[in-house]
Write a protein that binds this DNA or RNA. Sequence first.
DNA 1: CTGAAAGCGCTTACAG
DNA 2: CTGAAAGCGCTTACAG
Lengths: 337, 337
Amino acid sequence: MKQSKKRRVTLQQVAEHAGVSTSTASLIVRNNPRISEATRQKVLQSMRELGYVYDRVAANLRSQSSTTVGLIITDISNTFFSEFLIGVHDALEEVGYTVLLGTTFDSIDKQDHLISTMLEHRVGGLILCPVSGTAQETALRLEQLDIPVVLAVREIPEIKCDYVGADYREGALSAVNHLIQKGHKRIAFLGGIRESSTWVKRMEGYQTALLEAGIEVDDSLVIDSAPTREGGLEALSKILRLSKRPTAIFCFSDLIAFGVMQGVRQAGLIPGEDVDIVGFDNVPEAEISHPPLTTVSSFPRRSGTEAANLLHHKMSNTNHKQQRIILKPELIIRESS
Amino acid sequence: MKQSKKRRVTLQQVAEHAGVSTSTASLIVRNNPRISEATRQKVLQSMRELGYVYDRVAANLRSQSSTTVGLIITDISNTFFSEFLIGVHDALEEVGYTVLLGTTFDSIDKQDHLISTMLEHRVGGLILCPVSGTAQETALRLEQLDIPVVLAVREIPEIKCDYVGADYREGALSAVNHLIQKGHKRIAFLGGIRESSTWVKRMEGYQTALLEAGIEVDDSLVIDSAPTREGGLEALSKILRLSKRPTAIFCFSDLIAFGVMQGVRQAGLIPGEDVDIVGFDNVPEAEISHPPLTTVSSFPRRSGTEAANLLHHKMSNTNHKQQRIILKPELIIRESS
DNA sequence: CTGAAAGCGCTTACAG
DNA sequence: CTGAAAGCGCTTACAG
């Protein structure tokens, strides 16, 4: 962990070289306008000559500030989250923050550990996609942090916190309604983790749609799974073993849907013909899958941007009021249904 | 940028509370074993009571060390890089480093700026996927950094540096040979940026394969493009306008190949039947695309892991010898060819 | 517009 | 095994 043998060039050395005081040099690195242009040029020249690199860490320590933000997500290989990450990252970079990245893989321990690490690194704010079933203890801890926190995607019901997400219930409702309108009566709901708030919301939408159409909810058609492509494949294999198979499948996410489509094909059926499939999220791959996937866009990238902007606002305004930003999902009909 | 109103609990306060000196408390946070178990427990208890959070930034400043690593990639939405990111991130997290993330989107200015930001944040090491056409100036600067640097994916010919990548020439060779063996004589090479070392290497492989098979290289069949799906789509549209169309297409990357397949379909042709298509990288989507994409695996995730391990080794061993890790690519034949 | 001194929260020798 | 003092590289009042 030891850094360079060579010592860093310090601001003091620069000041000496330029023949000014350290305070003057300090004002210059921070672009304070009340320094004469002549001195400024002289000092900037010394910096170049000595190869000076500003030490933001020391500066932040002294001034009790921070130029970093922590971002904790579940899994980068899940395109939903990588899209979310892009949204957050780009928005924060634009306003001059550097992001520290952490991934939980849905482990509560990892999440606790990452929160600590972020705090130890003095992040000025935190964007967290909480692990499903985040403990009361963690929740309390989050509430007591003295840096701004924005929750995203999943919610923690126990605490009040700024939050960015989509109306998952509404999204599920529109997806299932679409299937009902196509004449389906046996519609499965596949994949996802039951403990997750995002699952619960989708389940509500699923049930509501069925009930409103006078269709009874058949528990054997609701199968949860790991939120991965493999999870989708597995959930589907259970469906295939059913004596009364569904004619349409509403999937927890696009990732799950890709697994389901793969399984459907392996069983010799054609997605969109023999069985209708709808995903959730509208990740970029949904458009190029074959057949292109009907899905509900939950705007992952935009969620990231919104979360970043909200956090930034919170970090710069002390009188920030708590906000919940709920994006309205959009049904995108393609050929898989 | 101002942090919390509440002041951080300091180690000194903890020490006072526990009735020991600050040095003792410091030894305890760093798990120094020469403190009696009794004192240790007493101090740990005080930390819990006061809600102490270790200030790694202050610690790193004082001890001239770092627990962060900078990672600069081109574009997170390109699955190749997000896979690379996962590899780096997981490997570094495991050994206790936190990663600062930056994306260049192939802009030299952004790259220069990101390198500065990373240095200002006192990263202990840097993994960089250089922008194509990185200037001599930047290259020199990289060479003179006094922190360990590992280059990945693309190379900068001007400088000597640790490097991790795949044998792109070899990969292209095997892809094109595969197409030749299938009887193709008119094989296009589509997409990618000519300035990039990874393009040049693939081009070498492409030419070599053709020449060895006694096929003349037809320049009209080599079309570069932005390294995106849209780029692939565009490059294909140029191909479609040709009077003598190719019967097979070797694509710079899977991402390009997805664009090409999309375009092929839009033109009413069937990929893998009317025209054979081969990609490069083997990103996860290659397996689920339709038809599944024949491609050359360049092991993006493993490249990331290797780069991280190499960097870590370099950071902890002062007598590290410069290394080049070149992964051997692997042709994966699926149904698109 | 510029300077001398103190301090952010930690660790590092050096004594005991 | 524990303590008092100095210092990492910067910024912050406060004087001038």
